[in-house]
């Protein structure tokens, strides 16, 4: 167990608190936590997958407007995630496990984001955080089958989530074009707010 593996759930809490912006950091820290333990093929594949599920969403979302869904969930959601993590730690300790379950804590943080946040992008980030957590657990626990299934589930979430976001959220290009058009036609309409 390394310091990096302990950092992963903390960064995942940032996803719960602030949103998809921290997903990239979760992916990078997860990949580093896998590679610090060794450079076996399983770890390299796991690290590659962790980056694959963290980098493309950021690049993809850069082409769309900010998701302005009104969040009804309060500021207590990250603390709820933290409480669940502590419960999980206690339960694992009682079961005789001496290793910090970093991957599962990350998964719990992602689950809280999926359940408590209303914005679709935030939920997408939460699900991908869950997948990062399962990937980390599978690599640290040397379970290639679970790693493969988590990779498949991650690919499904990444592709279909991206497809749904593409169909719901307005693209940034259209907004810019509309803004340019608005500036052109603005003075002719009799005034401007700026």
């Amino acid at each position: 167990m390394t310091l990096l593996a302990i950092l992963v759930p903390l960064v995942a809490l940032c996803v719960v608190a602030r949103g998809v912006g921290f997903l990239l950091l979760v992916g990078v820290v997860t990949a580093l936590a896998m590679l610090v333990d060794g450079l076996a093929p399983l770890q390299e594949v796991g690290a590659g997958l962790a980056l694959l599920f963290a980098i493309p969403p950021q690049v993809f979302l850069a082409r769309y407007q900010h998701d302005a869904t009104l969040e009804r969930s309060g500021a207590a959601v990250p603390f709820f995630a933290l409480g669940l993590m502590v419960l999980l730690l206690l339960a694992c300790g009682r079961a005789g496990s001496t290793v910090f379950p970093a991957g599962l804590c990350t998964m719990v943080a992602g689950l809280v984001a999926v359940v408590c946040r209303q914005s679709m992008v935030w939920q997408w980030a939460g699900l991908l955080t869950c997948i990062e957590g399962v990937l980390l657990s599978a690599v640290l626990g040397r379970q290639p089958v679970v790693l493969g299934v988590a990779a498949l589930a991650g690919a499904v979430v990444l592709l279909l989530g991206g497809m749904c976001i593409h169909r719901i959220m307005p693209r940034l290009v259209a907004v810019r074009a509309a803004g340019r058009h608005g500036r052109r036609t603005g003075p002719a309409g009799g005034g401007s707010n700026t």
């Binding site: 991957g103 599962l104 998964m107 992602g110 689950l111 999926v114 359940v115 699900l127 869950c130 997948i131 957590g133 399962v134 657990s137 599978a138 626990g141 379970q143 679970v146 299934v149 988590a150 589930a153 499904v156 979430v157």
Partner: peptide, 12 residues
């Protein structure tokens, strides 16, 4: 996917 992730976590 939440269901799948939960079962996978249990298996780990």
């Amino acid at each position: 996917s939440v269901g799948t992730v939960l079962v996978l976590s249990g298996l780990l």
